[in-house]
Nucleic acid binder design. Structure first.
Lengths: 177, 177
DNA sequence: TTTACTGTACCGTCTGGACGGTGTTGTCAA
DNA sequence: TTGACAACACCGTCCAGACGGTACAGTAAA
């Protein structure tokens, strides 16, 4: 059934992210994912015919979720700018000490091109933010700082204390206006 | 001889970085590195007994070079702050479109712990910068923005135009005071 | 003689993927 | 209504190839 299939796909994608996070990005094997998802290797290959398709699925799901979350934030307070929504969303995302996206490293190791959709999305987001604001300098600083925050979270590099994290977000929101 | 050995080590490390950049971080095999370095596999294993030692060597060389470059920048203009030196150094580093450090992804794939020295160094640098300045908010924004710049360069994500790059650096230097 | 390799042969392990099955579900003619 | 059949979702096994690492014999310079 379609429902059954969709469930399996989601279970598998979640399992892949878990394996990458816990066993390390270099240990993301199909067998490990299958075991983790409670599916046989054959079943995994049925849903994702190749490892490349699995990676692609990971990227697509990530992008879809991110876009949805951003849209929800932006719509939540209609008066607030997209940049503010992006700042707050990223701040929340980066609160978890364990990076939820270490599967990205697996994808890069497999083939750096897998991240192309993410790069494209980011460019698009930047363009959208540029249209929104007239202070390009401030936007650049904010955008890059968020990028830095996400990067640190991804690398599991806990340089900032919680207080500093809050202070940074406040400063960015102030710059964003 | 020591000179001969040291040369071989450097050649091998450079070759490893090249292979990671050109063939992709997931294709960093000992054989590929040996071939690229113009060394036999036996010779490679003579200099780096395991792949882990090779990765470790890569990290150490990177850190040593970075520290030296930063110290040189800071000493160049004695009146200038370390933060300014860090900003300028990073801006220059990130001017090359091709990321010179994609070997980092290979190291992460092998074992995320390989990056521990880099994290420690970054924490240390942050502490040093905190001592230097009294405007913590500004420092946080600058530090994270640089982190974002480096991250984008590492991921080969060319979102910023050269003009925007310059504008950003100027804005950061202004914030840094 | 020691140092710093070269070159080759080889081993054990792991991995992606192909393949042939199996049960369950849906469809449709009789 | 029912029985045949097909599509779906998945299982379990097997295999060729790649990889890290070992072992060892040879060699050329210092």
């Amino acid at each position: 059934m379609r429902a059954r299939k969709a469930n399996s796909r989601d279970k598998i994608l979640a399992a892949a992210a878990d394996v990458a996070r816990e066993a390390g990005p270099g240990s993301l094997s199909l067998e490990a994912v299958a075991t983790r998802a409670g599916v046989s290797k054959g079943g995994l290959l049925y849903n994702f015919p190749t490892k490349a398709k699995l990676m692609q699925g990971l990227v697509e799901r990530y992008l879809k979720d991110f876009q949805k979350a951003l849209e929800a934030r932006a719509a939540e307070n209609g008066d607030e700018s997209v940049l503010s929504a992006y700042i707050k969303l990223s701040a929340d995302d980066c609160e978890q000490p364990k990076p939820s996206a270490s599967w990205m490293f697996s994808a890069i190791a497999e083939d750096p091109d897998f991240l192309a959709p993410i790069k494209a999305f980011k460019r698009q987001l930047f363009e959208r933010l540029k249209e929104e604001t007239d202070a390009l300098g401030s936007l650049l600083v904010c955008f890059l700082a968020i990028e830095g925050l996400r990067s640190m979270n991804l690398f599991d590099s806990d340089v900032l204390s919680p207080d500093e994290h809050k202070l940074l977000v406040a400063a960015l929101l102030k710059i964003a206006g």
